[in-house]
Each structure stands twice: as structure tokens, then as C-alpha cells.
Design a protein around this nucleic acid. Structure first.
Lengths: 190, 190
DNA sequence: GTCTATAGAATGATAGAC
DNA sequence: GTCTATCATTCTATAGAC
């Protein structure tokens, strides 16, 4: 379907140039059609953008849910460390994370409410999934560490590594991952 | 000076709408002049943007350097916790952080090299200042925690809190700050 | 240093033929 | 569903009067 192809190309260009920076002409060009033909699939640039964002959100949600299913019975240390590694590893493969972060961090003001709502869906899902992870494995935590606290702290580190990912220095990212993980794990267990 | 006023307004609009999303007409309008008059101060939109970014970088550097001077002889726990609180508190006061983050995280591709270089100056300065903080107070750390590791982990949490700041939910930010700090401190000391 | 006038290109979008 | 033709608007930028 061509509308999927359009959304795929739009995702890339919005990720690279932002909403205002990406033009319909350029998107159409990459797909191999004229910009006017886009209107046979989407009634406006806004609709294309929102539709792309919704797909992107689904994509992110689908990843974390599938990850949780696959790591259902894995020890705490592995679940957490695998998550960081696998999530960060996705960044290179396609532009979905990049687009989602850009849009969530700095939404075009016209769509602020809609985007914030989508971002919240994602963050809430992340929080409740990891809260469950920590609750189930509560025995591994120090008695003084509440599951909610362990979850919040973990997701803060996760976000911090995303920022480092954007800066684009793999060596520094690796150091931050190793150090953060090491200290975090000592903080919640030993 | 009008050019400073222009940069101030440009900073705000670039922070809110991004480089492509902010127009010279809108900036000039907020200053109270015609868009053509901007060219008496800056030879292009690019120059206005770069000049604004350089000011913004100076501003961020100046803050961290001044903070370090003021917290020169403060105990480790206070230096770190104060830094998080004071830095995060700046976000509401003006748009400098917002502009700097937006530009550093997602630079317009035309200026990618220049922006990355500026961002690196900032990150390197942050890293070396905090490395010193930890080295001087090495006695407070567990023997197994290297100062560099403590610094990297701390800055990851810092970045993670910046992301939460962008999402704009103060309650959640507070929970993340408290949990992260608590676990981090246990990880490096107890 | 600010203005008017204007250029030239690009933008998102519509109408209608095929 | 894609095309050509076209529109109205906006954009950055320049020239020249005051």
C-alpha cells in the first residue's frame, strides 16, 4: 500500500528535519510521486504527521510489550540489563525511536495535546510494566527499596541513556551504561 | 543594544518552534521592527541562529562554572543534590535550557558539526568539573567505585531528569528525582 | 538602523483531466 | 490514484530611500 510507504518515508524525514523542516515535496519525491498525489492518501500534512506519530507510538508500545513477554521468566538483573541493551540497539536499525523522541520531547505546538497524550500512554505503559517486574521480583531488592522507587530510578537512567544516544558518541554511551548499571544495581540490591 | 534583543527573542522562538519553525518575520514582529531590518544586525537567519546558540552555550557553561565555585567546599551529598535541584529549577525561569537542549538533541542538519562541537564542549566541561568533585571527595565513595564511574552515572541521571523535565509533569519528575537520588547515593556510598 | 518595495523560491493545498 | 496546472501564502533575502 502506498500510504504505508508514504508514512515510512515521512517518518524518516520528520525524524531528520522535524515537522516544519520536512516538506511534502521532498517526501513525495522520495516515494516517487508528485507532492499533489499525497492528498489522495492524506487530507493534509497534519494528518500525515499525526498518522505517522500514531504508528510510531504503536511501534514503541509493541516493542516493550513483546520484550516483556519474552523476558517473562528471566532473572531481574537480566531483564533490566537486556532491556537497556536491546532498546538502545534499536536506534541504529530504523528511525522510529528517533522520530518518537523528537516528537515527544519537542512536539509541534499545534499538536501538543495530542502528542502529550500519546507520550503519556507510552510512559504509563513503561512504568506499569516495570513496576510489575519489580513487584514480582521484590525478594531480590533490598528491603528499604520499594518497587516503585526501583522502577522510577531505572527509567530515569533509561532516559539518560537515550540522551547520550542522541549525542552520538558510542564510547561515551558505553561508559555511561556500564557505570550507571553498576551503581544502580548496587543501590537496589547490595 | 537591538541585536541582543533580537537574539533574546530568537532564543525564545527557536526554543518553541525550532529553527525551521521560527520565522524572521515573527521574531522581528516581537521585537517591534520589520523583518528586513534584521539584516542590519545579522547577515542571515543562519547567522542569527548560530549567534544565538553560542550565547546559549556560554550561558550554560557560565552556570555550571559559577555553581562549582559557589559549591567549592560543600559536602559531596550537597553538591550533587543541589546541582540537580538548581539546574532543573532554571528550566522554568527562561528558555535558555530549552533552546540548548532542543538544539543539542536535534540540531538542524546544516549546522550539525558546529552544534555537536559546542555540545561537546559543554559535556566535556560538565564531565571534567564533576570528575574533580568526585576525586576531591574520593574518601566518601565506596572503595569499589571509581570517581569516573560515579561521575558518569551521575550525569546519566541528570540527563534522564532533563527528559522528564521536557515531558512536563512536575509530580512525576519529583518522584524520579527522589528515587534516583536515593538509589544512586546508596550505590556509591553504603 | 529602519523603512518600503520587490524579487525569487518554496510552501501547503485545490481543481480537474486521465 | 496520479498527473498537470494553478493559487495564495509565506519564506529568506536584496536594493535603495530616508
Amino acid at each position: 500500500m502506498k500510504s504505508n510507504q508514504l508514512k515510512e518515508v515521512a517518518l524518516n524525514q520528520f525524524a531528520l528535519h522535524g515537522y516544519q523542516g520536512a516538506s511534502l515535496a521532498s517526501i513525495a519525491n522520495e516515494v516517487g510521486i508528485k507532492k499533489q498525489s499525497i492528498y489522495a492518501h492524506f487530507k493534509s500534512k497534519e494528518e500525515l504527521f499525526i498518522s505517522t506519530f500514531n504508528d510510531s507510538l504503536d511501534n514503541e508500545l509493541q516493542f516493550i510489550k513483546q520484550f516483556m513477554e519474552e523476558n517473562h521468566s528471566v532473572p531481574l538483573e537480566e531483564v533490566l540489563y537486556n532491556f537497556l541493551n536491546e532498546y538502545l540497539g534499536r536506534y541504529q536499525k530504523d528511525h522510529n525511536m528517533s522520530f518518537f523522541m523528537r516528537t515527544s520531547f519537542f512536539p509541534p505546538l499545534e499538536f501538543e495535546e495530542q502528542i502529550k497524550s500519546g507520550t503519556n500512554t507510552f510512559v504509563n505503559e513503561l512504568e506499569s510494566l516495570f513496576l510489575l517486574v519489580f513487584k514480582i521480583r521484590k525478594a531480590d531488592l533490598k528491603p528499604s527499596i520499594a518497587p516503585e522507587s526501583a522502577m522510577m530510578s531505572f527509567l530515569t537512567i533509561f532516559d539518560g541513556l537515550l540522551v547520550e544516544l542522541l549525542y552520538g558518541f558510542p564510547d561515551r554511551l558505553q561508559k555511561r551504561l556500564t557505570s550507571s548499571w553498576n551503581i544502580y544495581w548496587q543501590g537496589i540490591t547490595e
